[in-house]
Each structure stands twice: as C-alpha cells, then as structure tokens.
Write a protein that binds this DNA or RNA. Structure first.
Lengths: 195, 195
DNA sequence: ACTTTACCGGGACTGGTGGTCTCGTCAAAT
DNA sequence: ATTTGACGAGACCACCAGTCCCGGTAAAGT
C-alpha cells in the first residue's frame, strides 16, 4: 500500500529519446497528407522503434495519438487586437476557421472527434483541447459584455457553444463552408444582442 | 452502352425477405444497449443469413448500417404549436434535446457521426438526416422572422447552424448537458435579435 | 419435365490491424 | 561482475471486413 517504489530503481532506464521519437513520428504521420489511417506499425517504423516500446509508454494507440496531438495543440488559440470588440470577434472566428482551411488539418480534427467517441484517452485530449479554446472565446466575450457590446444577461457559455458549435457542426456534417463569410455572419448574429 | 439488361432475367431472384431481415437485425443490434460494435458477423447471425447475402445487397458494412438507420430516421422532427414563436422555438429545442436524453440514442448518434467521418455512405445518411432537421428549424425561424420576432436581415442558415451546432458540439464533446435549461438559454440567445 | 441461372446459408479463407509475448542485446545501478 | 529492466525485432493471437467457394434450391426459359 506504499505510494513510492519499495526499493531504489535498478536496471536500464526508459529512454526519453524513444518517447520523443514516437511522439514526433506520430505527429509527422498525422500531418502527412497521404496517410489514411495511422497504424502502430507505421508509427514504430517511422520512429525506428519496436512496437513494444510504444506500449511501454502508452496504454493504447489512441493514447499515443492523443498525446502527440496534445503536444501540438497548446498554442494556436486565436487572439488578435483589432481595436474593437466586433473586430476582435470576427478575427477570432476568421482565424479559427482558417486553421481548418487545410483539408489535412480538417481531416485530422474530424478523425480526432470520431476516435474520441470510442477512445477515452482521445476524448480526454479533445475535451482539454476544446476547453482551452472555449475559455479563450469566453474571455473575449466577457470583455465585450463589460464594454456593453453584449447584453448584460447574456449566457456567455451558451454563446461560446453556439459559435464553436457552428465550427464543429459544419466540420463534421460538411453541409456548409467555414469561410470568411461564415465568420462574418456568425459575428453579426452573436453581436446582435448588443444592448 | 445499353441501359437495361441485355436479356430477360433468369435464375432465382434475390429474396426481399432476406434484405428486410438484415435491415431489421442491423437496427436491432444498433439499438441494443450492450452492443459495442456492430459486426457483419453479428448482423448475419441475428438475421439468420449468410454474410455473402449482405454483400449481395450492400457494398459495405457502412452502407448496411446507413440504410438501416435511414429507414428509422424519417419521422421525429420536432414541431409543436404553442401559440408563440418563442414558445415554438423553445419546444423545438426541448424536444430535440430530449430525444437524446436516452444514452442509447445519444450513443448511436455519436457512433453515426463518427462512422460518417470515414464512410461515405453513412456520411450521406447523416447529411440527409441533418438536412431534414435544418429545413424544419429554418421554416420555423422563417415564420418568426415574418412575424417580426427576428431581425429582417438575420442569416437564418447561420442561426440554424448555431442551434444545431450546440446540439452536436455538446453531444460529441460532452462538456455540458443538453437539458431543459440549455434549450431555454439557446432560445433566449437566438431570439435576442428580435427587432 | 429438364436445364440454366443465380440467390441461399454456411463456412473457409485473405489481409490488415491492435495488442501481447518472447528473445537476444544493452545500459544502468548495485 | 551481477542483476535488473528497457531496447529493437519479430513471432504470435484475436478480431474483423470482405471474398471465395460449396452444396442446395427456387425461378425462369426451353
């Protein structure tokens, strides 16, 4: 029932370089245009590593993919200062949509959402990924509400979900584009409640 | 280059009962709570049919699943008359969300969205499924706009996507519930543009 | 009635994939 | 020097989509 190791560690240590190589290889494969499905074999070969080494670090393929994605999902939350709340909001959406203009990236996000539906590790990464972005948009909306550009009683969490909902809905169902026009229209509808 | 068959059909005909049994069995498996993944083997066994018979009617497993779903996806587009536009809208969302209260149904829709990302047949069914619902909501919003309850220059397609976006976004990422409160808040934010 | 055609259920088979097991090797700590 | 455990490599298993083939049978033409 002790938390720590019972005795000092002996034996060869796990190689951090191997872990890094696996993550890099996974992300490289995920970013490669031609790759249909990223397999464990492919990751191992690309990283120059045995399959077992992958499973020594992660419990499942989904976990590796999720981890590889998480490393690169940190930054890239849009945020610009255009001088006006409406301008900032439009820029936020334009940037967010533009990030998915590349079919490769859009496909990856589709793949992640799909995989998250039956892999809890990927689901966790997706949850974190989206939470960061929701928080960023919410902060932006809060500034707008403070400035009186949104109704005082606006449900910011709902507005955030309405905005990102459009992104994910169109990404996954593909019935309408996520272009500049969509960003402008979304901004217009969200800020209509100016009050 | 002739369109029709070159000669009169001979030989035993395909058995419509087998097709129906396969579709029924597939839907039954899709609806079964315990079923993780619906396999071709399981469908064949449940329908009392050979695997080849399935592939005689459909080109892929996804096509079978899609077809089975399509048969049952017709009805159930919400639509009530509560006397007011806001009331109708709230009822529409409440009904839509309530349809996903059952974890079985919600899971199935998640599964369909996921499978649609790598199976064009399922994608087609999902596209049709969602299009019917978008049209219904759009008609409702149009009535509201005509009645002056929405801005004259409102982008109804965007409003529709914002509403259904919330549903799919929350369904797939699971960061917030699709409950009565959400339906009310969504209604409030959408109708804020009254004018 | 007889033949031909093609669907039927069933089962063997292929190919690909996630994940485990084993082996000989090698590095780190005792 | 010995022990421990990670390493690359590859055999192996389980599962599944999809194909192939079989003996049987129903429907159409002759």
């Amino acid at each position: 029932m002790s938390d720590g190791p019972r005795r000092p560690h002996t034996g060869r240590r796990r190689n951090d370089a191997a872990q890094a190589a696996i993550l890099d290889a996974t992300f490289r494969l995920l970013s490669a245009p031609g790759t249909e499905a990223v397999t464990i074999d492919a990751i191992a070969a690309e990283a120059g590593v045995g399959r077992q080494t992958i499973y020594r670090w992660w419990p499942s393929k989904g976990a590796v993919v999720a981890d590889a994605l998480a490393r690169h999902a940190q930054a890239v939350v849009p945020g610009r200062d255009t001088g006006s709340f409406t301008g900032d909001l439009a820029a936020f959406f334009t940037d967010s949509f533009a990030g998915l203009e590349s079919e490769v990236l859009a496909d990856r996000l589709r793949q992640i959402v799909a995989e998250a539906q039956h892999d809890e590790h990927v689901a966790r990464v997706l949850a974190d990924f989206t939470a960061v972005r929701r928080a960023a948009l919410r902060a932006l909306l809060e500034r707008g509400r403070t400035a009186g550009e949104l109704a005082a009683d606006a449900d910011l969490d709902m507005l955030v979900d309405m905005a990102y909902g459009v992104l994910y809905y169109r990404l996954l169902v593909r019935h309408a584009p996520l272009d500049e026009k969509a960003a402008r229209s979304l901004t217009a509808e969200l800020t209509r409640s100016a009050g």
